[in-house]
């Protein structure tokens, strides 16, 4: 993997993709990385397709445009596959991670594009409902991302996430633990092909 890793998040408004890109950036910073995390602000409606982006690297990041050629594509809502070309600009050897109950092979077929990339799937929504109590698939998707692209040791990343989530949720233990469990489960359950 090259020194600068670029990530594009596809989601619908309300699924927490912006928060995911922010949390990932903050956690990567504490691991000594240079980071960017930002959404593409549109009309900001619940349910509308939206994008968010991350850059994570070992050197200061100066580029300030959207990510066009991602190393990793994160799809929080599988219904976006089709209406949105989620594979657009994906780098050779890149990976698409999809929140779905389907197998990676089935998703690859649905994508309908050829090329040298990996597909990973995880039932992030199912995990979120079981661990957090609501279908907010963003944190389990971060767990899956860490499996697919292990740019940080998982356990130290989780320690950092605990601090960030504690701050974000003002120490509400059940929500923090729910999110951490969701990440851990997604990390273990993600399938790649």
């Amino acid at each position: 993997m090259s020194k600068l890793v670029e990530i594009r998040w596809h989601a619908r408004g309300g699924q927490g993709a912006k928060t995911a890109s922010t949390l990932l950036a903050e956690a990567a910073l504490s691991a000594g990385k240079y980071v960017q995390g930002f959404p593409e602000y549109g009309p900001e409606r619940m349910g509308a397709p939206m994008l968010a982006f991350n850059r994570i690297g070992d050197e200061p990041i100066r580029i300030h445009s959207n990510v066009e050629n991602p190393d990793i594509v994160m799809v929080l809502d599988p219904s976006l596959i089709g209406p949105v070309n989620v594979a657009e600009g994906l780098k050779d050897g890149g990976v698409i991670v999809v929140n779905t109950q389907d197998e990676p092979q089935a998703v690859r077929q649905k994508l309908g594009v050829s090329g040298n990339f990996k597909v990973a799937t995880v039932d992030a929504s199912g995990i979120a409902v079981e661990t957090i109590g609501r279908d907010i698939p963003n944190t389990p998707m971060i767990g899956a991302l860490l499996k697919v692209y292990e740019f940080l040791p998982f356990e130290s990343f989780m320690e950092r996430m605990r601090i960030d989530l504690d701050r974000k949720f003002h120490g509400r233990k059940a929500i923090v633990e729910g999110n951490l469990n969701a990440m851990r489960r997604a990390y273990q359950e993600v399938k790649q092909a």
Binding site: A25, E26, L29, V35, Q36, G37, F38, I61
Partner: peptide, 10 residues
């Protein structure tokens, strides 16, 4: 706006 105001950076 947004590019700097709303992006997380080091």
């Amino acid at each position: 706006g947004f590019i700097t105001s709303h992006a997380v950076e080091n």
